[in-house]
Design a protein around this nucleic acid. Sequence first.
RNA 1: GCGCCCGUAGCUCAACUGGACAGAGCAUCGGCCUUCUAAGCCGAGGGUUGAAGGUUCGAGUCCUUCCGGGCGUACCA
Length: 566
Amino acid sequence: MEIKSVLSSKIDAAFTQLGLQGQAAVQASARAEFGDYQANGVMAAAKRAQKNPREVASQVVDILDLAGVASKVEIAGPGFINITLEAKFLAQNMPGRVDPVTEAATIVVDYSAPNLAKEMHVGHLRSSIIGDCLVRVLEARGHHVIRQNHVGDWGTQFGMLLTFMQDNNADGRTDALADLELFYRAAKVRFDADDNFRSRARLAVVGLQSGDADSLSAWQHFIEISMTHCDDIYQRLGVTLTRKDIAGESSYNDDLAQVVKDLDAQSLLQESAGAQCVFLDQFKNKKGDILPVIVQKSDGGYLYATTDLAAIRHRTGTLKANRVLYFTDARQSLHFKQIFAVASVAGFNRNNASLEHMPFGSMLDAKGKPFKSREGGVIKLSDLLDEAERRATELVRQKNPHMSQAQAENLGRVIGIGAIKYADLSKNRTSDYVFDWNQMISFEGNTAPYLQYAYTRIQSLFSKGDVKVEDLPSQVIAIDEHERRLAVTLAGFNDTLDQVIEEGMPHLLCSYLYELATRFTQFYEACPILKSDGQDRSRRLALANDTAMTLRQGLDLLGIGVVSHM
RNA sequence: GCGCCCGUAGCUCAACUGGACAGAGCAUCGGCCUUCUAAGCCGAGGGUUGAAGGUUCGAGUCCUUCCGGGCGUACCA
């Protein structure tokens, strides 16, 4: 159950009854002395009604019915309402699982979107794992999720690659394409140096666009190999995207001319310097200069704005999305503002869906510069994952000198990939973040290994104490203060997931899990579990089990695995 | 030039969107392993939230100006 929603709806009802305008503004209490939850909305509502906030608070509390939910409701300060939850209510809200929402929505999530001309590099990491986390959380809450991997599988660069492929007789040879990055670079060198090659490459693009069978089959072959590279990365990263989620740029080809035609039919189109543009007033600066949204180049070609407009029609029309979430680089903010606006005036948003750009910042190195390889080039994602696994395996070996190499490598995979993902997911999506191996690999503090470690300690309790989890009570009343704080934290799980869904912010789930693990470890240090008897023992084991299930479930929603020993 | 984002402890990040004394981790210093995994726990120090004004019961959060940084800004995505 969502504690915040329960409290909010009760307090909102009291507000309505008293004729007050405003929201309850419930949040977890800032300090232990303020109870478990606090409602801050009275002050604002009282001001609006020009009444004394403390009096209003006392009226709210008088008619507030929190029977079975709260054991204590107090007014504090200028008009805060502090709420302490009833022990029995807490007992009923030990999560261990995710509750489904009452109204499921259809939500399209656009994420990952690698350029298939090259191999995936670090720039694709954030979109892939942040988007995948949202997908997991949305599905867990019972929403109908449609993944859309908007891969870059079309455009001029493919002319170059296909021509290079033919010249090198690489059509049927996967080994030539084993390293797409090298292949791309070699093709680019040829393209820049050889006029004849360049013109043949341009012809190949024309062939592709006009649907020439040979060009198309070569193109398909190339795409197939490139996607195999992506699948491998997704599999290693634990990203749930599959082939059926691919809706690349090429899939909108047939609709692009129609998009332009439809814009024209609504008199939204204007020619400027030979290009077909949409000019909207809201993209005018103070001086009156208007920014165009170009939908067709002067040479007749289409652009990503055109493709994205076609995608909006498809997603809100055919797919019937209520929400469309775009996980792309923050640098595309203006682009999305523009196409959302165009879609709106042109009536392309068929379902009146909420179109939301979920931008994220760049990865920087320790010096605050864009994260590059030592040579200044892009870093392949596969290399990054190799290094994470290598470093983690090394650390596992240090901590467990007697462990076999194979076992250390197994642990190293889960821990290393978890560490790299968590380091990213735990930071606020919108800002740039510093990627630092030394920090990430220390595995101390707010990291995935800390959470995984808390989980293994619980598993260790169960195996050492020969505990059958199914025999544990499903509801227990917390007694010790450490138990109670743990129970309150456990109860907040579903609230956290709601917030992640609302704002598209996985770091909120990370913060929650870190707090949960911290609370558990404090409880673990303070309260003997296996060494206690009777009710103390079963109660504490039940709390430990709920913590373990919530940690595992929460990490799974982040796309991070757990191990039973580390 | 114009637009968007950012500036919080030595470093990396939080702060539930205007709430109570700005919190964590790393690093530093001091304690805790014959007791359920020390990848842990307990404690200490460390802040004029870039600066100055303003709005109000209350501002890291909103408004104005300035300083510093990043990104974007007509046919790449």
